[in-house]
Design a protein around this nucleic acid. Structure first.
Length: 818
RNA sequence: GCCGGGAUGGCGGAAUUGGUAUACGCGACGGAUUCAAAACCCGUUGCCGCAAGGCUUGAGGGUUCAAGUCCCUCUCCCGGCACCA
């Protein structure tokens, strides 16, 4: 046979598949369904490098595999094209973002086309398409109507580089912008905020129902950051007796509420710490309360200094503790009535818990450090059991559970038990707090979905009536961010000025847009029913397809997944979707590094373009190589040498077509059955590397055998078809089959043919392998032992065998006496 | 610091969950072919050793007839979170 001409054969089949629509999704309710989804890309101006298609190849293989098992397959592709990167790209290249996005998408599609994917392009979606973002806006309105979207003027993260507000999630740990690296400022701006915290508990609990990698679940748990503890009130006593008479609105005494996860250590609390932003501190420094704090001047200086510090300075200072005493006032420990001092210190965060803590320096590292610096008492109230000694030194710090000491009536109680007991005794409340913050949802930029709200002087924020959706993003010449905190949309008078849906009076549109994450938080639902104008997703379509069976991606998995799960659960609550979770199974994608081991980047000039690889080695070799590189979740460097191995494999299969005989080779039967089993099991488990190696093993054996039967050949082609769709299709046609191999039925294996009739067993003496023996499968122990003795030869000659271990069909181990 | 995941030849990696460690591929070496080269084909290839043999899954200890796999201690690497009380 002639050499495999990949360019010609790929072109032939790509055209024919498109023409015949063999990958069309059918929405057939009679069939089992498989919804296989890639995290859809943002179509950047750089185009694809060889790392991008890795996940797409995996889903392509998986979806082909499912199709060959009779599944109705949904394997779609679309574009996440709103957001800052697209807008910044457009600004830099001085084109309108819409034009830039169109061009980039066309480029991406052309690149993808070369690789031979089975996407059903009739279901393509684009988040910037008004028929799509109509529904993004609709979801926002539902959130608003259910009280989960609200306006807030809390200070937000402002990026002076991107000129927009950002969510907490958009910041690097050091407080810089993840996009441009600018130092984030706090800025007071009216913002739309989504109440994601309302779903924190359910998002946490339902993680247990998901077939996801542990590290992704763990990252989500960290992000939600639930901690259980107690809120405990500490009454205050002022030096000025008059102040002690003051009562709150409900007649309560002045007090500070702290949050703690260790109420069991209450007897060891030797001071309180308030965050600089704590409302009580703000109040005490208020002009109206002059004289409450004798050292108000020092406190004010500290609070102002803390406010002026940005996140970077805080990070640079590390854990060096600072703070200032609040003079003129003491707190009363409700456990023992003891008076303890109060401090303001920025190691306590205003935004977490109650913004105030009880400090237990013997049992908390940070309090310990602060107490040593300020010379405060360190009192041990929990000891490890049994008594470990050396507990009386002031240096001692013990953060584990143990038995209570010096804790009044609770002395001797296990600390876990004491948590509830002490909380109850002092009138505290069990409380749960979260690290996750509500989602700041406004961006002061042009390229995003307009938030469908109208501000009426009479009626306030009024939702745009649903029949007026979508609120179209106006076409404009200039869309530069204003930098003032106003959206560029604010300058378009004819767009902004409208009428109130309630009273018809003059009103203004909301000019902020949604963040980049909006569209991607629900796009997977639209693929189920992409052209429906009446429904976000029609109920019967949703019931057929939901949930996504396998979701594949990497990178910003944590944030995207948390936002999407939040919206999905909300949509479940309002009856739009029928499942509690959007993505039943998640496969995490390991990246491909450049050949030099660095990240592939234009900056390093080490980018490899899949177009070039496909042109040189062929799409099938490219696909097979990326799957053979190693475990799917591993990050591995590209190797031009290694792709040649995949190419050789493809070409050796091609040449094996010359060796096809009428009758099956009996010698190959056990191996073929093993191969059918292993390739199938491995694809199901996303272990593509070992699936490929098993096919290589079969190929090696078939070459050695010199012939492969027609039926065996057909089975082999089918196993390889998901990996190498072009070449297998060509060979399928050449061997006289009707119809596409990709619509053929996956081969089955015969359980009884998986094993050979003989077994090669290892022969060990004292646990060391000294040879092998070939015996009939399932031969009796005596026969096996005799054969093994012969094989052990000189190693047991003249020795006494103390014990013989026989593992059927595996090994015999002779343990020599003494 | 806390949490999660790892460490196997020159390289990517495999190993039925306690049963022949290094499958498969790359690279390397030798051969064949060629005027020559590429490609293709055949053979060798964990380490030490001429050999007999010995040693080997990050380090050290343990359990077992048998440990990459189980248990204990430690080191290093990757990822997430990080003054979250």
């Amino acid at each position: 046979m002639e050499r495999y001409d990949h360019a010609a054969i790929e072109k032939k089949w790509q055209e024919r598949w498109a023409q015949e629509g063999i990958y069309r999704t059918t929405d057939d309710p009679a069939k089992p369904k498989a919804y296989v989804l890639d995290m859809f890309p943002y179509p950047s101006g750089e185009g694809l490098h060889v790392g991008h298609p890795k996940g797409y190849i995996a889903t392509d293989i998986y979806s082909r595999f499912k199709r060959m098992h009779g599944f109705d397959v949904l394997h779609p592709m679309g574009w996440d094209a709103f957001g800052l990167p697209a807008e910044n790209f457009a600004l830099k290249h001085k084109v309108h973002p819409r034009i830039a996005v169109e061009k980039n998408i066309a480029n991406f599609k052309a690149q993808l086309a070369h690789i031979g994917f089975d996407y059903d392009w009739s279901r393509e979606i684009n988040t910037t398409d008004p028929s799509f973002y109509k529904w993004t806006q609709w979801i926002f309105l539902q959130l608003y109507k259910h009280g989960l979207a609200f306006e807030s003027d809390e200070p937000i993260n402002w990026c002076p580089g991107c000129l927009t507000g950002l969510a907490n999630e958009d910041l690097e740990p050091d407080g810089t912008c993840e996009r441009c690296g600018s130092v984030i400022e706090k800025k007071k701006l009216p913002q739309w905020v989504l109440k994601i915290t309302a779903y924190a508990d359910r998002m946490l609990a339902d993680l247990d129902t998901l077939e996801w990698p542990e590290h992704i679940k763990e990252a989500q748990r960290n992000w939600i950051g639930r901690s259980e503890g107690a809120e405990i009130d500490f009454d205050l006593r002022f030096d000025d007796p008059a102040l002690n008479e003051n009562r709150g609105p409900a007649g309560e005494k002045a007090h500070i509420t702290v949050f703690t996860t260790r109420p069991d250590t209450l007897f060891g609390a030797t001071y309180l710490v308030l965050a600089p932003e704590h409302p009580w501190v703000t109040l005490a420094l208020d002009a109206a309360h002059e004289g409450v704090l004798p050292n108000a001047r020092d406190v004010r200086a500290y609070v102002e200094a803390a406010a002026a510090k940005d996140e970077i300075e805080r990070a640079a200072e590390g854990k060096e503790k600072t703070g200032v005493r609040l003079e003129g006032v003491m707190a009363i420990n409700p456990a023992n009535g003891e008076e303890i001092p109060l401090f303001v210190a920025d190691y306590v965060l205003g935004g977490y818990g109650t913004g105030a803590i009880m400090a237990v320096p013997a049992h908390d590292g940070r309090d310990h450090e602060f107490a040593k610096k300020f010379g405060l008492p360190i009192r041990t109230v929990v000891e490890p059991s049994p008594h470990a000694g050396a507990l009386d030194t002031p240096e001692f710090l013990f953060t584990g559970p143990g038995l209570l000491v010096d804790s009044g009536a609770f002395t001797g109680m296990p600390s876990e038990e004491a948590k509830a007991a002490i909380t109850e005794k002092v009138g505290g409340r069990l409380a749960t707090t979260y690290k996750i913050k509500d989602w700041v949802f406004s961006r002061q930029r042009y390229w995003g979905e307009p938030i469908p709200i109208i501000h009426c002087p009479e009626h306030g924020a009024v939702p745009v009536p649903e029949d007026q959706l979508p609120v179209l993003l106006p076409e404009v010449e200039s869309y530069e961010p204003s930098g003032t905190g106003e959206s560029p949309l604010a300058t378009i008078a004819e767009w902004v000025n409208t009428t109130c849906p309630i009273c018809g009076g003059p009103a203004k549109r909301e000019t902020n847009t949604m963040p980049q994450w909006a569209g991607s938080s629900w796009y997977y639902l639209r693929f189920m029913d992409p052209h429906d104008d009446a429904y976000l997703v029609a109920p019967e379509k949703e019931k057929h397809w939901a949930p996504v069976d396998v979701y594949v991606g990497g990178d910003h998995a944590v944030r995207h997944l948390i936002y999407a799960r939040f919206w999905h659960k909300f949509l479940y609550d309002i009856g739009v979707v029928s499942t509690e979770e959007p993505f039943a199974r998640l496969e995490f994608l390991g990246f491909i590094l450049a050949e030099d081991g660095r990240k592939m980047s234009k900056r390093y000039g080490n980018v490899i373009n899949p177009d070039d690889v496909v042109a040189e080695y062929g799409a099938d070799a490219f696909r097979t190589y990326e799957m053979f590189m190693g475990p799917f979740e591993n990050t591995i460097a590209w190797s031009t040498d290694s792709i040649k191995g995949a190419q050789r494999f493809i070409e050796r299969i091609w040449k094996l077509a010359d060796k096809v005989a009428e009758d099956d080779s009996p010698a190959l039967e056990p191996l073929l059955n093993q191969t059918i089993k292993k390739v199938g099991d491995d694809i199901e488990a996303f272990k593509f590397n070992t699936a490929v190696s098993q096919m290589m093993i079969f190929l090696n054996a078939a070459e050695k055998e010199g012939a492969v039967g027609r039926a065996q050949w057909a089975a082999l082609l089918k196993l390889l078809a998901p990996f190498a769709p072009h070449m297998t299709e060509e060979l399928w046609e050449r061997s006289g089959h009707e119809g596409s191999i990709h619509r053929s039925v996956w081969p089955s294996y015969d359980e009884s043919k998986l094993v050979q009739e003989t077994a090669t067993i290892a022969v060990q003496v004292d646990g060391k392998t000294r040879g092998t023996a070939t015996v009939e499968r399932d031969a009796d122990a005596a026969t096996v032992t005799d054969a093994a003795k012969a094989a052990a030869g000189k190693w047991i000659e003249g020795k006494t065998i103390g014990k013989t271990i026989v593992v059927p069909n595996r090994l015999v181990n002779f343990v020599l006496a003494e």
